[in-house]
Design a protein around this nucleic acid. Structure first.
Lengths: 103, 103
DNA sequence: TCTCAACATGTCGAAACTGATATAATACCG
DNA sequence: CGGTATTATATCAGTTTCGACATGTTGAGA
């Protein structure tokens, strides 16, 4: 998976949109991108449901507000590990995470 | 999640066993460890089903045999990202990955 | 036994990811 | 309007994870 390609994804708007078959991504790469985006959406959604600010989630994570913002923005510098740990920090179970990924 | 703690997990046998409530891990940390171990098992299982050697999977991944061995050994130096990309390289879908995680 | 393919383990420099910091938008309320 | 809380974006040095390499172990077949 190419870094530059991933970055181009960021550039465009594609807020709401479904996915990224709009670039020449292999099905594999597309699935990987989707997985990360779905988790980032799930984090934002869960955090809001929990009535937490980004600062508060950052505290639970031992991280910073700016990183939480990046997590939720689908920033390419955010790993699946961090996305997953964010879900767990919000009280999500393995099943919850699996559900968010399978969507 | 403490690095040293994760390393101690490696030390003990606990091959087959269910999980890691045998150390003082928070439910969160335990879930994170479980996720990684479940995926590493899924990778090995899928690779064998596909009749591939570690070298062949490494080629698909653009990686090396030694890293694939670590992936399947649940080595702490292996990220969820790499585990996930391994599953995808083996043809797994998002749902397949979710299934492996929810187990 | 010897050979060979498959797998395991340790190490290292390079690349990716991280928290922190600074600073800029945005939004709500007085 | 100013003030305050929340979120967004950029940058950077420290850490983690990476592929690669070297080397060791295992198991099956001759």
């Amino acid at each position: 998976m190419d870094r530059a390609k991933w970055n181009r994804l960021q550039g465009k708007g594609w807020k709401e949109g479904t996915v990224a078959e709009f670039l020449d991504l292999s099905p594999e790469d597309a699935a990987y991108v989707e997985l990360k985006l779905q988790l980032s959406e799930a984090v934002r959604s869960l955090r809001r449901q929990s009535k937490l600010t980004q600062v508060q989630l950052a505290e639970r994570l031992g991280s910073s507000q700016s990183r939480v913002a990046k997590i939720e923005a689908g920033d390419p510098s955010v790993s699946l590990d961090l996305l997953t740990r964010s879900m767990l920090a919000l009280g999500a179970s393995k099943k919850d995470i699996a559900r968010a990924m399978a969507r």
